[in-house]
Amino acid sequence: MSYGTATSACRAVFVRDFGLVWRRRGDALNPVLFAIMVVALFPFALGPEPKALQQISAGAVLVALLLAGLLSLDALFRSDLEDGSLEQLVLSPHPLALLLACKIAVHWLTTALPLLLVAPLLGEMLYLPRPVLGTLMAALALSTPLLSLIGAVCVALTVGMRRSGMLLALLVLPLYVPVLIFAAGACNAAQQGLPTLAPLLWLGAALALALVLAPLACAAALRISLN
């Protein structure tokens, strides 16, 4: 019996996941909507003065995107668990970590990338200074995949549960802290006219590490929780 190559398995995962997202393309915009609403709340809370909003703009955008990502994280394995395809994935002869990396990549492309595209708009809503925008986008481009990868490990641990929302947030939050610190640190440095390369490089290094380790950890966690 032949199983096909790992490449073809990855391609199959990509095609299937994209197809599933495409069929429910209305849902795909939910995180974007959520992020816009969160950001829109800040002027109501802080008052409409551009100066006050400018001060917190980069941080607010980062937190809004982080929360939106957290909201969409729960759905990463949910439908696959319900229709049983997750178990097929675990039982498949191909390396599980590789297949999971494909799933995480699709998840990032369909939930985080739209958020990334809408980030300049969110920044504009809070009067983000123009020179900071480049740094913010770079920090987001490095940190959102990192958040997806770290989040996937935690989702894999909670996958069997019916109501995992609050628990997932509790598991993910301590792991998100360093990412948020460096991403916001880069933006704050840009706002003060300081060099921003160091925090961005730290994020890049963390991303490189997570790209290799997170799928492996995710596979191990999934094996534990599916048993």
Binding site: L175, I181, G185, A206
Partner: peptide
């Protein structure tokens, strides 16, 4: 398993918070 992830995370948090 989560505790093991946490032990990797702890020094990173400490370092990042220090830097921040």
């Amino acid at each position: 398993f989560l505790a093991l992830i946490g032990i990797v995370n702890l020094p990173i948090v400490h370092f990042s918070v220090n830097w921040w």
